[in-house]
Simulated scan of single mutants.
Amino acid sequence: MNIQEYADRDMLAIDVANVLAGDLEAALLHHDTVSLAVPGGTTPGPVFDGLCAADLEWDRVHVLPTDERCVPGDHDRSNERLIRERLLTNRAAVAQYLPLYVAGKAPEDVLPEVESLINPVLPLSVLVLGMGEDMHTASLFPGMDGLEAALDSHAPTLAVARTDVQPEARITLSAQVLDGALSKHLIIFGTAKRDALERAMSLPPEDAPIAAVLGGMTVHWAE
């Protein structure tokens, strides 16, 4: 794991956008198509604003969320909505989006259908993750039902996440898919999350799911 510190969040957003563009460009030199998995939430938005303008062959890039709430794609809590509004615009508008959730279907019922679309783009070329102060990442939450199975090295591509602290079910990439990405980046802000990351380094993934994917990770941090 390598930690990169930045003077402020604006500098981080600019630099990380450039780094991700470089990773994608390098991957495109060796593969017909590449895959980019990204989180939702507010943290990656400024990075997306810069990345979407990168001069890449975006029509060869598959973009997918690391996890998704089981809500319609235009819902305020939808990761797809943020990704479409902030990343799949400008030059990146021609990238192909792969959703994790199909509206109107129970998440367990849709997993085989979604996995059939995602498996051909694995391993992930480039991965961007966030992390909560509880040390969750994607929708792998400490204490959630099914966490042990989602952390297993032989887990399927996707898992359904249900927790008492979240109002809706989620679909998430499993730990083995996240950890298998060829280029991995974690973006965190603030002292509390930096402290949480340091705690996670000495905890098992069952208590700190982010610990399952830290090998070879580049961490981008600003106050």
Rank of each mutant, 00 (worst) to 15 (best):
L28E: 11
A37H: 08
D67K: 04
L20A: 10
A106C: 09
R84G: 03
E85V: 01
I83T: 02
V34C: 04
H30K: 15
E57R: 12
N119V: 11
L111H: 14
S35K: 07
L82Y: 02
A21D: 05
G41D: 14
L51I: 04
H31M: 00
L51Y: 03
G73Y: 01
H31V: 00
A21I: 07
G73D: 13
L36K: 02
L88F: 02
V102Y: 08
L98S: 10
L28T: 09
D59V: 03
R69G: 09
R81Y: 08
P99H: 15
P39M: 00
L98Y: 01
D55F: 01
C70R: 05
N90L: 07
A21M: 08
V102R: 15
D67A: 06
R86A: 08
I14A: 11
L36T: 09
G41N: 13
G41E: 14
A27W: 03
G73C: 08
L28F: 05
E108P: 09
W58T: 03
D74I: 05
D32W: 03
A54C: 04
E57Y: 05
L122F: 00
F48A: 09
L88I: 08
V16Y: 08
L100Q: 11
W58M: 04
V121E: 04
G104H: 03
Y97W: 13
L24C: 06
G73P: 11
R84K: 14
I118V: 15
D49S: 13
V47T: 14
V19F: 00
A54I: 02
K105V: 15
E113R: 14
H31Y: 00
L98D: 10
A26P: 00
T42P: 06
V61M: 05
L51P: 07
Y101L: 10
A53S: 12
H75K: 07
R84T: 10
T42A: 10
V34P: 03
V121Y: 00
A17D: 09
R77F: 12
V16D: 04
R60M: 07
P112A: 04
L111I: 15
N90A: 14
D49V: 09
